[in-house]
Amino acid sequence: MNDHIHSKCEELLGSLSAYIDGDLAPALCQELEKHLEGCDDCRVVLNTTKRTIELVHSPAEKSDLPEDVRERLFKRLNLDDYLKPAAS
């Protein structure tokens, strides 16, 4: 990896997050995509960053509130009378 490309990687790294969020200006987007075509390392960083975000979004990560926790919460708030099962 030569110095020129290396500094390009670093420069584009700062835009990666915005790129993933679809929040990057079109010109920069194009520049980044062009760079990605020729840079394996940056492509891996992009793919694994995306995957990291997907993992925390995964339904397996979004477990429901445990029923006993919900019950104690409603009691503490004096909302016992609304303590019917939560609508799913």
Partner: peptide, 22 residues
């Protein structure tokens, strides 16, 4: 500075199935 967040590991694990990752 993004110096401290410069990537150093370039293994591509993004294709591993989710049940394996999680």
């Amino acid at each position: 500075s993004i110096e401290d967040l410069k990537p150093a590991v370039f293994a591509d694990w993004s294709g591993l199935p989710e049940d394996e990752l999680l």
